[in-house]
Design a protein around this nucleic acid. Structure first.
Lengths: 162, 162
DNA sequence: CAGTGATCTGCATATTTATGCGTTCAGGAA
DNA sequence: TTCCTGAACGCATAAATATGCAGATCACTG
């Protein structure tokens, strides 16, 4: 027996359907690909929820759903907290895919386009162990004066990963 | 000495500034709040990168940057893989904040509006241990026939968290 | 090199999203 | 009750974003 009593949304006064509607939006969006607010509006209409696009624009903002190439998606809580971290921490978590030492050098791998911002973030720290950085498209070369310094930089970066 | 040789973007032929530009976009966007493509266009112009809004629209898509109330943000790799996970896994990771047992019941806490989709996802599994679910706004009550079943459901949900 | 296909980009415009303002109504306070 | 106040919402439209198409340049290939 599935009880499945969705929506006792009426408990705050039947007038406002906002809470119930937003729940349905979340449900819809996590299940299927919805690529525009107007499409969402039509899907909701099938559930007897009639609202305008304007209202959906407001709902989506409140629910922190963002438009991606694959439709609206929740901006995970993880991604959010990210915004308040120090620049280097953010950059490392966002872009650093791989890290390999080579004598006094450190080779960092990132997704395409990620090298520039990662290198910028490292430069921003002004660590004295860093002689310089060279950033391509998906690779950053960090140059240290000697192996000992390289090891220290490596340790710090690895610490930031989690 | 900071070498900081950004941008040897010319390496594939000077003509295309795409790679370099996208690197700068990433850098800009992770550092400051950019709320529209036109604003981004103006910031880039200060770096001597002159492109139209149309190009930025394409860049942002390629870089998987999404528009949020606080400006454009990277859709973290984490959030992405999420899209391909089973519905219940997604729902749990996205919405489940807290989980507490009470005899044969399980009380799940979610952010506002998250209860409906989470309950729907649980229902979708059609587990025989689940007698039914009741979803409010930020709370789901999962009803099991007895404590043993509740423990099993709890175990499965906890497994999904990570 | 001439030819071919792929990529990048701008332009113009279609499509989509955001928002100022006005209305309605629920929930108090008096 | 009657009068507030604030939330929810639609309407109209402004603002922002996406895209079809065409021109330009590059990377190859023969």
């Amino acid at each position: 027996m599935q009880i499945t009593a969705y929506s006792y949304a009426g408990c705050l006064g039947v007038r406002t359907q906002k809470t119930y509607r937003q729940g349905q939006i979340l449900k819809l969006v996590t299940r299927e690909r919805v690529t525009s607010q107007d499409e969402l509006r039509r899907r909701l209409r099938q559930l007897d929820l009639r609202v305008t696009q304007a209202t959906l624009s407001r709902d989506l903002r409140e629910l922190k759903l963002v438009k991606t190439a694959e439709g609206y998606k929740p901006l995970s809580a993880v991604a959010e907290e990210t915004a308040s971290l120090p620049p280097l921490t953010r950059a490392v978590r966002e872009f650093l895919l791989d890290l390999r030492p080579a004598q006094n050098l450190l080779v960092l791998k990132t997704p395409p386009g990620g090298a520039q911002p990662l290198a910028a973030a490292i430069d921003g720290e002004r660590w004295k162990e860093v002689a310089g950085t060279i950033a391509g498209d998906d690779t950053v070369l960090v140059i240290a004066p000697h192996r000992r310094a390289r090891a220290e930089i490596q340790r710090r970066l690895e610490d930031l990963i989690r």
